[in-house]
Structure formats: structure tokens, C-alpha cells
């Protein structure tokens, strides 16, 4: 194996570490808010430092690779994408932390099952986790078709987010004493929606790396038909 390929393999493995770390944070933040588990929330908050540290590790390796190996063509697209994916993962980690902060400091009880059901929280969480899984597989397998499917899933997340506002408003009307807590829940929903956006960015970065195609700022509806499925 050529040295360039060895370096790329090492970079991929460091990003995989970052990815696992962030995925765990996200998964736990969903569990913590669903089950009102404050211990778990504190664990997420203390783990956030490792996410930031790992972001720097990946960044430094990318910088070194660019400085020492002068990557071009697919290697250049790879390292540019990796830098952006790394940054997006770190932001997703931040969102998980802010959900954990709500659970640790402002949440007073588990979300009422009826409200969770109306908000489609479980479906929203599952969709984001699925996006995360698909984006990761798409990068590993250099599969841009799979990556563009992540964009379709983000539409689902956006719709759930949009529908949440009237549901929360109705709940506040019925339970005016829980207004502050419900606003916190709205913030959680908003963070999850932002996670979806960041995962879409990651999917676009994967497509740029694999196909050199620019998807950013292109309406999803303008994509060729087969890429929407």
C-alpha cells in the first residue's frame, strides 16, 4: 500500500472514532430526554470535552496530510470533505450536549407520553439516528446514492419539526403551569432538527468527495429522480 493510502486509512479511522463518539452522545441525549435520566445527561455533558478533543485530532491530521502529501483529485476532495464532516459532527455533538443540559438543569419530569406521541418524538429520533447511520455507511462505502438518500430523510425531520409548534401551543393552553418546561421541549425538537440539517451537510460532503458533485444550495427537488429514492 502506498504511503498516501496508509495516511488516508489512518484519517478515516480517526474520523470513525469521532463519529462513534458523537453518535453515542446523540443516542444518549435522546434516551436521557425521553426517560428523564439526569445521570445520563451529566455523563453526556462530561463527555462533550472528548468530542471537542477528537475534533482537534482529526483537524490536525487533515492539516498534516495536506501540508505533507499535497493531495490532488480524489485525495484532495476526500480531505476537504473530511474537514467539513468533522466540523459538522462536532456541531451535532454540541446539540446533544444542549439537550443534555436541558435534562440536567431544567427538565422536571419525563415528557408526558401523550405529548411525546403527538410530537412524533420517537420517529424524529429514529430518523436522525438512521440518517447518521446511512451517512456513515455512505462515506465508508463511497456510495453517493446512499448519501443523497440522507437528504430525503431530512425532509421527514423538517416536517416533524414544523408540526411540533401547533402541538406544543395546544399543550401549553391545556397545561399553562408547564409553559417553561414545554418551551424547553420545543428547544429539544429544534436541536434535533438542526442535527438533521448538519447530517444533510455531511451527506453533501460525501457526494462531493465521491462524485465531485456540488449539492449544497441545490434544492433537493432538483436532484435527478433516481437520487431521491
Amino acid at each position: 500500500m502506498k504511503q498516501t493510502e496508509i495516511e488516508i486509512k489512518a484519517l478515516k479511522s480517526r474520523l470513525a472514532d469521532m463519529w462513534s463518539l458523537v453518535e453515542q452522545q446523540v443516542r444518549k441525549s435522546f434516551e436521557a430526554v425521553t426517560a428523564f435520566d439526569q445521570d445520563l445527561a451529566h455523563e453526556i455533558i462530561s463527555r462533550e470535552k472528548s468530542v471537542n478533543a477528537q475534533e482537534l485530532v482529526v483537524d490536525h491530521h487533515c492539516e498534516n496530510f495536506i501540508a505533507l502529501f499535497n493531495p490532488v483529485a480524489v485525495d484532495l476532495r476526500f480531505v476537504l470533505s473530511l474537514l467539513k464532516i468533522n466540523n459538522n459532527l462536532e456541531r451535532i455533538g454540541d446539540f446533544a450536549e444542549s439537550i443534555a443540559l436541558f435534562v440536567a438543569h431544567n427538565q422536571t419530569k419525563a415528557i408526558a407520553p401523550e405529548l411525546a406521541k403527538q410530537l412524533q418524538l420517537k420517529r424524529m429520533f429514529d430518523t436522525v439516528l438512521k440518517m447518521m447511520e446511512q451517512a456513515r455507511t455512505a462515506l465508508a462505502k463511497e456510495d453517493s446514492r446512499l448519501a443523497s438518500r440522507v437528504l430525503g430523510l431530512d425532509d421527514v425531520v423538517d416536517l416533524i419539526h414544523r408540526d411540533a409548534v401547533p402541538v406544543l401551543a395546544a399543550y401549553i393552553t391545556a397545561h399553562p403551569d408547564e409553559t417553561v418546561e414545554v418551551m424547553g421541549i420545543h428547544n429539544v425538537v429544534r436541536r434535533v432538527e438542526r442535527m438533521g440539517d448538519r447530517l444533510s451537510n455531511i451527506a453533501e460532503d460525501v457526494v462531493f468527495y465521491v462524485d465531485a458533485k456540488e449539492l449544497r444550495h441545490t434544492a433537493y427537488t432538483q436532484l435527478p429522480k433516481e437520487e431521491k429514492n
Partner: peptide
Amino acid sequence: KIFLNPEKAQTQNYITGR
């Protein structure tokens, strides 16, 4: 174009040192 996204695999293999 050649150094960001060459059309041919042979070009890519050459410029990336593979």
C-alpha cells in the same frame, strides 16, 4: 478540473501517485 476531478481513472491514479 484535472487536479480536482479528472475524468479518467488513469489520470487520477497518476496524479495521486497510485
